[in-house]
Structures are given as C-alpha cells and as structure tokens.
Amino acid sequence: MSEVPAGFTPSERTGPFFDLIGPVHTRTDERGIVLGLRARTEHCNARGFVHAAVLTALLDVVCGRNCAAAAGADAGLVTVNLNVDFVAAARDGDWLTATATVTRAGRRLAFASGRVEAADRPVATAGAVFAVG
C-alpha cells in the first residue's frame, strides 16, 4: 500500500533528515499546511510500531511550518519547546497525516498544537513553542 491520498504532492521543502524518513508529502487545506507520510518498515521499532522519533519529527515540522506561515517569518523559526504525547500506535503501511493549529504567532514567539493521525484516529499530539526570527 504505497499510494498517496489525493491532494498530496512531494514536499518541496526538505532536508537531510526528511530525505532519510521520506518522501514526505504536503498539501494546504482549511487546516493549513498538512504533512503526509506512508509508514514503512524502516520507520518501525522492534515491536512493529512507528518509532516515536518519526512522529515527533512530523509534529515539529508541521507545527513550525504553520507557525512560520502565521508569523510571516522569512528568517525561519527555531524550536524552543516540543511536548509530545503518544496516544496510539501506528504501523507499517499506515498513512500518517500531521496537522497543526497555531494558537499565537507574535514577533518573538509562536505557539501551536499538533496532531498526527493514522486512519482518522489520533496517534500523537504535541504542544510547540518556536522562537521567531
């Protein structure tokens, strides 16, 4: 099961780590910037669940990208704090969708809450704070 849901395209914004776990896909909808990733065996831990590091990376990036869009931060953002709660397991083959809601975007700090879902069920949630500029 490697198909990509409608509306998602390969992310133009990438980097060495995202290249390692990707391909990461993106789309923009009423929720803002949304990331998508098809979980593969390489993403899983010894128990067969998607590793927390993969979920955390998706949450960090989706929260950061949405905060940057809200803040109009051309210089980019730096993660100050990221609290992640893992609420269910994702498995090999699951399509992971990461979304974020910006709660405040100021001149110095931006705040967001994020969520990763698999099959319309929450897998992980996060609260994030970013330094702007």
Rank of each mutant, 00 (worst) to 15 (best):
V34H: 04
V34I: 07
A71C: 07
T101R: 15
A118P: 05
G22Y: 00
R47L: 15
D85S: 15
D85C: 09
D29E: 12
P16W: 12
D60W: 01
D120C: 13
C44F: 02
C67E: 10
V78K: 13
A71H: 09
V54K: 10
A70L: 04
A68D: 09
R65W: 15
T56D: 02
A70T: 05
I33A: 15
A90P: 10
N45G: 07
D29W: 00
A98I: 01
V54A: 12
V78S: 12
A68R: 15
G15C: 04
S113Y: 08
L77D: 08
L35N: 12
G32F: 05
G76H: 05
C67A: 14
V61C: 08
A57P: 03
D19F: 00
P122A: 03
P16K: 06
G32P: 07
F49M: 14
T79R: 04
D74L: 08
V80I: 14
V4P: 13
T97H: 10
H43F: 08
N66D: 08
G72I: 05
S113I: 13
A118Y: 02
F18P: 04
A53D: 09
G7P: 13
R121N: 09
A88Q: 05
A112W: 06
V4L: 13
L58N: 07
R91C: 09
A53G: 15
L20K: 11
T9Y: 09
A88H: 11
V87K: 02
R121Y: 04
V116K: 00
G72E: 09
R40N: 08
V129H: 05
V102Y: 08
G48P: 06
V123A: 01
T101M: 10
V4G: 14
V80S: 14
R65S: 10
A71E: 08
E3W: 10
D19G: 08
V24Y: 00
R91W: 11
T99W: 11
A119W: 03
G15Q: 01
V24D: 02
R65Y: 12
T103N: 10
C63T: 03
A46L: 11
T14A: 03
A131C: 05
T99C: 13
A119R: 15
C67D: 13
V132E: 06
R108F: 05
T41E: 15
A52P: 00
A73L: 08
A118C: 05
N66T: 09
R27T: 13
F18T: 13
S2L: 14
V54S: 08
F111W: 01
G72A: 06
T79P: 11
A75W: 04
A131E: 14
